[in-house]
């Protein structure tokens, strides 16, 4: 086959193999992403004609007390879930990496919340958090603490949602850490042992640096995911009481499908996109400095 013919034949086959995928990619990813950007500059309630308003939606949002509250709640949720969730899952991964008996059973049990839907998990935890008859307040009463009515308290509703999320994601992060730990050659520990290094020295001098790429990755991913929290908030509190658990995606949902402010919703979507983009860029820029191999 001549080079030209080969190229022609390649183009033909590339088209055959790519066409269905490309069609879906364009129609439901690329075009919506671009359209969403355009919509963030208009005012539109689906009924009256679209009106171009420039940056008004963005400016309006940053003067909107509710939006600022929602933005802060999202940050608060991230700060509340990511560090604790990562510390706990790392601890479990280290324990699980000791190859003790029953490891497979432990792993399966930690995995149960991961495979369950957020809706199911949220419904169950709503019952656990019940003020009068919930299991949690009963357990607290055993040690003499009178538990609040978790989900209807502006102070406690958000921490309650956070605990549910940490519980749900623990097994997932643990698994990522476990994979990272298993990538560290055991000869390093054996050599350190011979040199007389204690357990703590081994942890801080071998485990921590060699696990840094995994840790970094899990941190960034957890932050990005927590910026997009929605399901559990919607089921457990619907953003209440008094907006205390309302987050970015919840406000986006309300703007689009309750208030029918498509422009505002799109602007929120792009602010979310920008934040996620920023975190990803920081990851790319700093991963070389923070990650030690």
């Amino acid at each position: 086959m001549s080079m030209k013919k080969l190229a022609q034949s390649n183009n033909f086959w590339a088209f055959i193999f790519l066409a269905p995928n490309l069609l879906g990619f364009l129609a439901f990813l690329l075009i919506p992403v671009v359209a969403s950007f355009g919509l963030s500059f208009v005012e539109w309630d689906l009924l009256s004609p679209m009106k171009w308003v420039g940056f008004k939606n963005y400016i309006g949002l940053f003067h909107d007390q509710v939006f600022l509250r929602v933005l802060w709640n999202t940050v608060y949720y991230t700060l509340g879930t990511v560090p604790v969730g990562i510390a706990l899952s790392l601890l479990l991964a280290i324990a699980l990496n000791k190859k003790l008996r029953g490891m497979k059973i432990y792993r399966a049990l930690y995995f149960l919340p991961v495979i369950s839907s957020y809706v199911a998990v949220a419904v169950v935890w709503q019952w656990l958090y019940n003020a009068e008859f919930g299991l949690l307040n009963y357990l607290l009463s055993l040690i003499g603490i009178r538990g609040p009515s978790w989900l209807s308290s502006t102070k406690w509703a958000m921490p309650a949602v956070m605990v549910t999320s940490i519980w749900k994601q623990l097994g997932f992060n643990m698994l990522l850490f476990l994979a990272g730990l298993q990538g560290i050659p055991s000869t390093y520990y054996e050599a350190a042992e011979i040199d007389g290094a204690g357990k703590w020295t081994q942890f801080s001098r071998i485990t921590v640096p060699l696990l840094s790429s995994t840790t970094f990755f899990v941190v960034v991913m957890s932050i990005i995911n927590s910026f997009q929290v929605f399901d559990q908030v919607f089921i457990m509190t619907e953003g209440g009481p008094a907006r205390s658990t309302s987050v970015l995606v919840h406000y986006l949902y309300q703007n689009a499908f309750e208030y029918f402010k498509m422009g505002n919703a799109s602007a929120i979507a792009y602010i979310l996109f920008f934040l996620v983009f920023l975190i990803t860029m920081l990851q790319m820029k700093f991963s070389d400095n923070w990650v030690i191999y």
């Binding site: 086959w13 690329l30 689009a256 799109s266 979507a269 996109f273």
Partner: peptide, 30 residues
């Protein structure tokens, strides 16, 4: 399969991986 513009097109796919799903929600609804 080697074809013209393959790397550029693939980069476009990769680029969309960081887009939060919610960005596409309103246009998809429309």
């Amino acid at each position: 399969i080697k074809f013209k513009g393959r790397e550029a097109l693939f980069s476009l796919y990769l680029g969309t991986l960081i887009v939060p799903f919610h960005v596409t929600l309103v246009p998809t609804f429309l």
